[in-house]
């Protein structure tokens, strides 16, 4: 039962990263691919109707984490106190950047919110990457299941680490680069030249960087936390993951070069999903490893809620999921197709 909920929470988080990833990515490249006010408006059009729904996956995943693994939620949210609060502020700034920009037809107003939106998107990508880096590297848990990390200490991977050290900065950069790629490929799919041409140029420039930081992060993870390889030794099936990542990278490059938009976007989706599955696979059954003493690590077993609640949760979770997928299918169908430059008049 705990394993099932581990899979569910991991899948919901992966869905969040894939979905909100493309609108965060579109935000990162927003100022580069959209030069004129009309072009910027067109880029916003591509994410306008869906970004809020995408972000709900974060809330739904957070809520599910809360009820399925209360101790994990309590320990990690209070331990990562400062960066989480900053994530909240960034989410707020990004949301008002998107939503309030078009309410006032003024170049000053819109120019201001354009920068707010783009900057908040880029910082969010880095924060999320660093957060995942923290979970993989481990945190200084004490015997009572709590910890508190300052933002940085000595930038080294050790027992008394901060949120930021060289390893988590690296994972932050990986997330930034990966979401930039993902967002650029989404923008290519949803726009026409000249916006899509610029987004394609971004993809071709960023792809080699993505390849390098992916390899670097792999090497760094093996150095910073060699125990993560245990699961791969125990269950060789997991070794498929690196191959999927490699194939996804190939799909992105081939799709971008041969102008196969769908293939390229499928590639970046697969890349994000495979990286996250790989991390979850390596962590299991740990959910928050301790950098202090392995005995203090939080696992799915010592953090889960009681069985009755988990069982009843499965029932309503499946029901809710069916409904949610229904809405998503409907909304994406309503807003399918390319956004044209002259599409004025509606809110987006």
């Amino acid at each position: 039962m705990e394993t099932l909920w581990f899979v569910i929470v991991a899948l919901m988080l992966a869905t969040y990263v894939v979905l909100d990833g493309f609108d965060i990515g579109a935000g990162i490249i927003y100022l580069i691919v959209g030069r004129t006010p009309a072009e910027r408006k067109a880029v916003l059009h591509t994410i306008g109707p869906v970004w809020d729904g995408n972000e709900v996956w974060l809330l739904a995943a957070g809520g599910t984490l809360y009820f399925a693994f209360p101790l994990l939620y309590a320990s990690s949210f209070s331990g990562f106190y400062l960066p989480l609060m900053m994530v909240l502020w960034l989410l707020m700034l990004r949301a008002i950047g998107i939503e309030l920009r078009n309410h006032v037809p003024s170049l000053v107003w819109q120019g201001f919110f354009d920068v707010v939106f783009s900057l908040a998107s880029a910082l969010l990508a880095i924060f999320f990457g660093a957060a995942l880096g923290n979970v993989i590297r481990g945190v200084p848990l004490a015997a009572d299941g709590y910890f508190f990390e300052p933002l940085w200490t000595n930038w080294r991977v050790g027992a008394q680490n901060g949120i930021l050290d060289w390893y988590t900065v690296l994972t932050g950069i990986v997330a930034l680069v990966a979401l930039t790629t993902h967002g650029a490929l989404y923008v290519i799919r949803k726009t026409e030249p000249p916006i899509s041409t610029r987004a394609r140029r971004v993809t071709l420039v960023i792809w080699p960087v993505l390849l390098v930081v992916t390899l670097l992060s792999l090497a760094a993870t093996m150095y910073a936390r060699p125990q993560l390889l245990d699961n791969y030794h125990a269950y060789p099936l997991g070794l498929l993951v690196p191959f999927v990542v490699a194939a996804a990278l190939g799909m992105i490059l081939h799709g971008a070069l041969a102008q196969k938009e769908r293939l390229a976007f499928a590639g970046s989706t697969l890349y994000l999903a495979a990286m996250l599955v790989g991390a979850a696979f390596a962590l299991y059954p740990n959910v928050l490893p301790a950098s202090t003493d392995a005995a203090y690590s939080l696992t799915i077993y010592n953090t889960a809620a009681a069985h009755y609640g988990l069982t009843i949760g499965i029932i309503w979770w499946i029901l809710g999921m069916i409904l949610a997928l229904g809405y998503f299918f409907f909304v994406y169908r309503m807003f399918r197709g390319k956004v044209k430059l002259e599409a004025e008049g509606e809110g987006y």
Partner: peptide, 24 residues
């Protein structure tokens, strides 16, 4: 969390998805 996490998670699953999908 094992108790009130239920209602908070259900809010996400049943209310937020519905609201956000149809508000747009």
């Amino acid at each position: 969390g094992g108790v009130i996490g239920q209602t908070l998670a259900m809010e996400g699953m049943f209310a937020f998805f519905l609201e956000s999908a149809f508000l747009g």
